[in-house]
Each structure stands twice: as structure tokens, then as C-alpha cells.
Amino acid sequence: MLEGLLDRYLNRASFVHDLDPRVKVVNAFLFILSVVLLPDGAWIAYFLGWCAILAVALLARVGAGFVLRGSLVAFPFALVAITLVFTLPGRPLLTLQLGTWELSASDAGLVRFTSILARSWLSVQAAILLTATTRSPDLLHALRHLRVPGLLVTILSFMIRYLYVLVDETTRLLRARQARSAWSAQGKGGGSLFWRARVAGNMTGQLFLRSLERSDRIYNAMLARGFRSQFVTINPHMMRRRDWVAGGLGICVLLLLQFVAHFVS
């Protein structure tokens, strides 16, 4: 159950891990922005974008397999775009006969569909690289530097701190429910739909009350330690020369992608 929920940060010592988090956040965001701006069917640019991803993955000692496995999460969503293959006008490639209903796939539709998929796949990999090389407190600190409202960042840091605590708590609730729910050989059981929904609702209510009480204890503990509505970090977060160079290099790659997409081929 927790498989997909484990922390995606990979603890390695590398040039990319060592960069200022601001540079990584801005570059990841600009990379996605630039990929989304690539026109349909710019295959060379897509390929170069993938090369850039691979280069960063190698430099960060993250491994191409890790990025590739993680990037499959976006694919179920491709279902919403697949209809384009059959609806965009263009040269018909293949015709399916479904009873009286005729579906014909067009070349224009296929190009648009695969382009959307390629752009989405590249973007997801950039986001994975960002998470894999940046600890979440540093990520949040970068957001604060980048003028995200302080209240929001503070709530986010509390949320991440207690995320795994509450996920563990939920896992225990789910395991307890499973332990109490014997499965009869006839395949019948589990009560009515409303009964099952009520059990899930009671669990949710239970979790809510426990969370509420926990937040009270947290606040008292914070007061006891002298909290003054400010968080401090021991990481200095200074932009060094290598951060500027890495950021500038990243932007040059993005400009190259746009140039290739619009003027080559």
C-alpha cells in the first residue's frame, strides 16, 4: 500500500544534489514550460530533451531506470487524449469496424497524440529528477525564497513533517479493518454498500479527530520550546558561482531545444 508513497528523495552525493534548490526548482519549471511550448511532431527536439534528462540523471547518479519507472505514472491519463487519433481530420491510416460504427485513425491525430504523450513524459521525468535530488525542507525553502506566501510554505512544511505519521496511522486503520473482515467462501459478505461506506466514513472521522488532537499536542510542544512563528534552517542557501553556471547552462539547453524545434527539419 505504501509502495507509491515512499519518499522519492535519493540520498546521493553528486553535483546536482549539491546545487542550490532555487536553481533546480526554476530550471525544472522552465524545462517543463519549454517542453510544453514545443510544437507537435518536433521529434528531434523531443529526443534532445530526453538526452538532457539522461545527462542530468547520470550527473546526479540517480540512474535512468529509476526515472523511467517513475515516469509511467502519467500514462493512464493518456486515455483522455487517445480519442484525438480518431477525431482529428487527416489521411486515414487504419479503419476499425465496430458493428455499424466505423472508426478511422488519421495520421494527423496520431502525430498529435504521440506528441502530447512525449511532452508529458519528458515533463514528468524533469519533476522526478527535481524530487530525487532535493530534500523536501530545501525544496520548501526554495519556494519561500521564490516569494510563495509564507503561510502556505509553513503549512506545507508541517504537512510534510506529519504526512508519514498520518499515513502510518491510516495504514494501521486499514489493516485493522482487513483483519476484522473475514471473506466468506461464497464470495458474499461485507454488508451493504451503505454499511461499507459508513465504516470508511467512521475511519475518516476517527482519523480527523486523532489529527486534531495531535495538532494541539504539537502546538503545546512548540510553545514549550519557544516557537516564535519563524522557522530557521542550518543550510545557508547561498547562490554560488556553480549555481549560476548550472542555471545558465540549463537555460541555454532550453533555448537550443526551441531553436531545433522551430528552425531545424
Binding site: M1, L151, T154, I155, L156, S157, F158, M159, I160, R161, Y162, L163, V165, L166, V167, E169, T170, T171, L173, L174, G190, L193, R196, A197, V199, A200, M203, T204, L207, F208, S211, L212, R214, S215, D216, I218, Y219, M222, S229
Partner: peptide, 24 residues
């Protein structure tokens, strides 16, 4: 300022509560 930890924990609660499911 009392509400800051409350809202953080509540956000974690919503995240965790999304895991609770029931068979339909």
C-alpha cells in the same frame, strides 16, 4: 498562530484520508 500546526496536520489528514477506500 495556533492554527498553523492545525492546518498543516489537517492537510496531512486529507492526504492520508484519501487512502481510505471501500469496495463499491
Amino acid at each position: 498562530e495556533r492554527q498553523i500546526p492545525l492546518m498543516g496536520v489537517m492537510a496531512a489528514f486529507i492526504f492520508a484520508a484519501q487512502m481510505i477506500n471501500f469496495p463499491v
